[in-house]
Design a protein around this nucleic acid. Structure first.
Lengths: 340, 340
DNA sequence: GATTAGTCTGTGCACGTTCACAGAAAATGC
DNA sequence: GCATTTTCTGTGAACGTGCACAGACTAATC
């Protein structure tokens, strides 16, 4: 015997109106904070609202306003990396708080396989969201194409290289990479290499460019090892490969903290001590950094702030405001710990 | 100059009806898969749907059906732990896939401060969700009280001790803890202790109980160190304290992998080698486990499966189906690696 | 042939809100 | 005192769907 839902029916704007002795229109005006309502009516309505316990019905409001009050949060990453990379979690958290403060829902869409691409494309075309946040877009990303074609308000975390003027928030990956590499060079290292990761993404490519900038004439391409992902495993394997090729290396810029954690373990396995034999710096200032042995010197990435900012950007577009050209870059202080 | 939204209007059920030469009612019937519609009408309507690109309007449907098609996902944890604990992320992922397969939205609600409690309580009372998933309920949790009072369909991950017969999914924490402790004892350890965490939660208390079960008469309360959270930092501090008290300890059951990672580092700092001097086992089989040095022996927690199952439970309640009494327990195989 | 049961279809109403409009009352200008 | 503006309020029409109902047609039964 299944219990009937038993949800006592909610108060409507009409109930408030009769309680306050006014019309629906006036109630609507005070609920939405519009002008042209007398002080007398306002207090009566406000009292009536608390008395009958009125809460606006979103479905009705959305129906007449032709909107959904939901924002898609699209992550184009394998499931496993979504979990391993703490940045994404923090970005999600920041975006979620900003969105819920503005009474928006967040719909998480994780794109892993081809099948997911179709599913998300269909979802987007279905008009289930008013806008989208896109977290790790690749070059020639099919999802990005769908968003572009549908002309949905969108904002990116990181700069998608093939989208001319899409609003984005990000950090100065290149400048930050240059700064921390310079700082690493300042500790007196002579053979400094890099584990470069995710070069198909703007962040990965920019971090490598910043590294090259810092080294200038001293740059030696043989000291750069390229790995596909920002992951612990990739960092460990990459470092082993690099040590094979250049045993005299004494400094490493790892493209992320997860990569750096792999680097540290590879160095330990090879019998090198950090920072005495080799100095290591990372990027992100994630949980990996403090947990590593020794604690990582790294670039602080304001992930939660990025999430909040990217959400604000979409919200601002929805309000029809002008967008700052060229996107927003957040500050990235260097955090110096023990690994270099 | 703000661009006007320019969203070309979507096709409605009425557009499909005129295209197929039938009435709205018939279109509605085929869209919802009801009986009593001729084969002829069905094919005409299906063709018309793809031709005009019809997608049902959720807001209108929700309005008339008196529902929201959204499920709240409530996490009662500090923000930091939400990120550090990989289980929660995986549960979220599993729940999200199950929910979106059923065309439900997921609304993430993270409760950290007192202020959040009020916000979420108000959100729940507002009727913005049809049901809720509750992830880490404490005893006497105010959020749980609100859910109970509102009589919203709910399902828990883990068993809230003060709710008599609330549907839940979980694992047999006590049995699993007993099994892995027995296995640890089987490696010939004589002084086996535990870093017990989060005793205000059912999982924490049950893991300690399982440990006690396994030791039986050999149980020594002095070998149990209690720490507040399932965190790396707590594990490290707890292990240092325990070593102070019992330097002859040769086996440790850590209440979670994150705790175990802290234990490993504390043991390294104290100059003990694992597993030679001390055997260590964890709980969760999270990313921490494989990343640890040495890799952790641990209990595999099917986190993504828990998320999927808890979502299915709420969905099933929404369909008005009978609930299995006593909740659902998922399997937890032991994964034996190098740390013991 | 009349009655009944079963299948199929169209119409009007309801869901709860916002918005445009009309009109009343009050304030302001000459 | 009349015209004009400003402030305030109520009314009806949407928005797009599901559902109850009525009616039409077919097939089976008496």
């Amino acid at each position: 015997m299944s219990t009937p839902p038993l949800r006592r029916k909610r108060a409507t704007v009409h109930d408030v109106a009769v309680e306050a002795g006014v019309s629906r229109g006036t109630v609507s005006r005070v609920v939405n904070g519009e002008r042209y309502v007398s002080e007398e009516a306002r207090v009566a309505i406000e009292a009536a609202i608390v008395k009958v316990g009125y809460v606006p019905n979103n479905a009705a409001r959305n129906l007449v306003m032709q909107r959904t009050q939901a924002i898609g949060f699209i992550v184009h990453e394998p499931h496993s990396l979504f979990l391993e990379d703490p940045n994404i979690g923090e970005i999600l958290l920041g975006a979620n708080t900003a969105l819920s403060d503005a009474d928006y829902q967040m719909a998480c869409l994780i794109v892993d396989s081809e099948r997911d691409t179709d599913r998300v494309a269909r979802y987007l075309s279905g008009g289930f969201v008013d806008g989208v946040i896109i977290v790790s877009a690749r070059q020639n990303d099919p999802i990005t194409k769908v968003v572009e074609r549908l002309e949905i308000p969108a904002a990116f975390v990181g700069h998608p290289p093939d989208l001319a003027r899409a609003p984005f928030v990000g950090i100065d990956n290149r400048g930050s990479a240059r700064s921390i590499t310079e700082r690493l060079l300042g500790t007196g290292r002579r053979r400094v290499g890099m584990i470069a990761a995710a070069l198909d993404r703007d962040s990965g490519a920019d971090r490598l460019a910043g590294f090259t900038d810092a080294l200038g004439a001293r740059f030696d391409p043989a000291l750069v090892e390229r790995v596909p992902l920002y992951s612990y495993a990739a960092g460990r394997a990459g470092m082993h490969a690099l040590l094979e090729r250049a045993p005299d290396i004494d400094g490493i810029f790892a493209a992320s903290d997860a990569v750096a954690a792999g680097v540290l373990d590879a160095l330990r396995e090879a019998g090198r001590s950090v920072p005495t034999d080799v100095g290591v710096v990372g990027f992100d200032d994630s949980a990996w950094a403090v947990r590593a042995q020794p604690a990582l010197s790294t670039v602080h990435q304001p992930a939660e702030g990025l999430g909040r900012a990217v959400a604000e950007s979409v919200l601002s577009q929805l309000r029809g405001e002008d967008q700052p050209a060229g996107g927003i870059l957040l500050e990235t202080p260097i955090v110096w710990r023990d690994s270099a």
